[in-house]
């Protein structure tokens, strides 16, 4: 995908993704019950890495949450460092994985990249939280529970939504088709 996009386009798409990191959570807050479990900020970062490559994914992963925290106060302070570390990893890993994996079908490529990114992101954020930010407060149990048990709905949502969004973007010809000669999934 990425090699077919010009650098200007990648840059502007990254800008749009960063903006969505701020706009999406606000849109979800206007919908009752939807905001807190859906982690909507992760979606633009993952997509940016998938479409534009790992450098842009990294930029989006850092700038998105930071700008959002600074401009809107969400995510709250205690969560920001861990989240920024996590999203930075998301951006990098999806970019690298999409470069390395070519199963000749879009969906498997997406799923493998996403799952790897999410797992690694959780590992890194847990480690970062343990080492840097909560100086010893983090136990294994707390990490596992925070990372997976409470966040699994959001994780599932990302796995479901992102392929749907990617398919829509390809259909609308807003991103180049990864496998142009493939019909259907």
């Amino acid at each position: 995908m990425k090699s077919q996009l010009s650098e200007v386009k990648c840059a502007v798409l990254t800008a749009a993704s960063i903006a969505l990191c701020i706009v999406l959570p606000m849109a979800f807050h206007a919908i009752p019950n939807a905001g807190n479990i859906f982690l909507p900020m992760h979606i633009p970062v993952l997509l940016c890495g998938l479409v534009c490559g790992w450098q842009y994914g990294l930029l989006c992963g850092i700038a998105g949450p930071v700008l959002s925290a600074v401009l809107t106060g969400m995510p709250p302070a205690a969560v920001l460092p861990g989240m920024a570390a996590e999203t930075a990893v998301f951006g990098i890993v999806t970019g690298i994985m999409m470069k390395m994996i070519h199963t000749k079908r879009l969906l498997p490529d997406l799923y493998i990249s996403l799952i790897t990114a999410i797992l690694l992101g959780k590992v890194v954020s847990g480690a970062a939280k343990a080492l840097l930010f909560s100086a010893g407060e983090y136990s294994m149990a707390a990490w596992v529970s925070a990372s997976f048990v409470t966040a699994w709905p959001g994780l599932l949502l990302q796995l479901a939504l992102i392929p749907a969004v990617t398919a829509a973007l390809e259909k609308a010809k807003l991103i180049p088709a990864r496998y142009p000669n493939q019909r259907g999934r």
Partner: peptide, 19 residues
């Protein structure tokens, strides 16, 4: 989760279109 689609997909389409 499914109910998020009608908002999320068009918003991404709009963002990428503008970009």
């Amino acid at each position: 989760a499914k109910s998020a689609l009608p908002v999320v997909i068009p918003v991404f389409l709009a963002a990428f279109r503008r970009a």
